[in-house]
């Protein structure tokens, strides 16, 4: 991978846990937050379109979503990377890794606590390109995050492809990206609602402040998934969100809870 240019930096109205969760664990928001792409005819009408594939829960709040499509295959093989590069992917990957890469439309996930990544397919000029976007959420206050947003691309990609992919990136993610613009609205609303009196009166547990119970009782891990971690056969599930918040609580209460102290 090659980093191109400087990171975009901007101050968003957001709590870092919400932005981390947004990218790590929440393909479910795509159908509503990014509804405009459906209206524009860029994304499918099927409301489950971002839900096909696997959500992979790793240890310590890390994880990602491997989003395929309704057919189980990518809408563009190898995320629309040039066909000339496919033999290289096949050479460098194990057959089961190659199988996942060739079938995936979007990878999106996070490394706890505040590094997220997304590898989508996008373009605002009718041609779709793939890239990898890393972002660090730098907390400035409970309601303020400075975002550092990097563009990365496979070193071996042709120069022309890199340039077009960079434009696709500017059109989708980063402070001026059409997808990210709408994400920033959700982050801001969460911060604003959290300040309300009714929110202050709530207890901090599942199904109270937020639900976090999607898939909780009935979605079993898929034992056939070739990669590491615990893989659930849908990305519309709160498994990774819960893992993130449980890790946060574990770290926050590490030295506070003393065994037997209340007895």
């Amino acid at each position: 991978m090659e980093v191109i240019g400087l990171p975009q930096r901007w101050v968003a109205k957001a709590n870092w846990k919400a932005t981390q969760e947004n990218f790590s664990a929440d393909p479910y928001h795509v159908q509503t937050t990014h509804r405009s792409t459906v209206e524009m005819g860029i994304s499918p009408e099927d409301p489950l379109y971002a839900g096909y594939g696997h959500q992979v829960v790793m240890q310590n709040g890390h994880g990602l979503n491997v989003i395929t499509s309704k057919t189980g295959r990518s809408r563009a093989p190898y995320q629309g990377m040039p066909e000339s590069m496919w033999p290289m992917f096949q050479r460098n990957l194990k057959p089961e890794q190659d199988d996942i890469l060739s079938r995936t439309t979007v990878f999106v996930g996070g490394v706890y606590p505040n590094l997220s990544f997304v590898s989508p397919i996008h373009g605002t000029e009718g041609h779709l390109h793939n890239y990898l976007n890393f972002r660090v959420w730098r907390p400035l206050a409970p309601d303020k995050v400075e975002v550092w947003c990097w563009f990365m691309i496979d070193k071996a990609a042709p120069e022309e492809y890199k340039k077009a992919a960079y434009k696709g990136y500017l059109g989708s993610f980063g402070v001026s990206g059409t997808l990210e613009q709408d994400d920033t609205e959700t982050w801001a609303r969460i911060v604003e609602v959290s300040g309300g009196l009714m929110m202050r009166d709530k207890q901090l547990n599942y199904n109270n402040v937020s639900n976090y119970l999607m898939g909780f009782s009935h979605v079993e891990p898929d034992p056939t998934f070739a990669g590491p971690g615990t893989a659930y056969p849908t990305t519309y599930i709160d498994a990774l969100s819960r893992s993130i918040h449980e890790r946060w609580l574990e770290l926050l209460t590490k030295d506070l809870i003393i065994e037997g102290a209340s007895k």
């Binding site: 191109i4 459906v38 524009m40 605002t124 001026s176 613009q181």
Partner: peptide, 25 residues
Amino acid sequence: SAFFDESKAALTTRVNRYYTKSAWV
């Protein structure tokens, strides 16, 4: 590195989005 690097087609896509019902920004 840039915030915008747009052709007329790309700007038109951005503009058309603002005439949908769900460009929440």
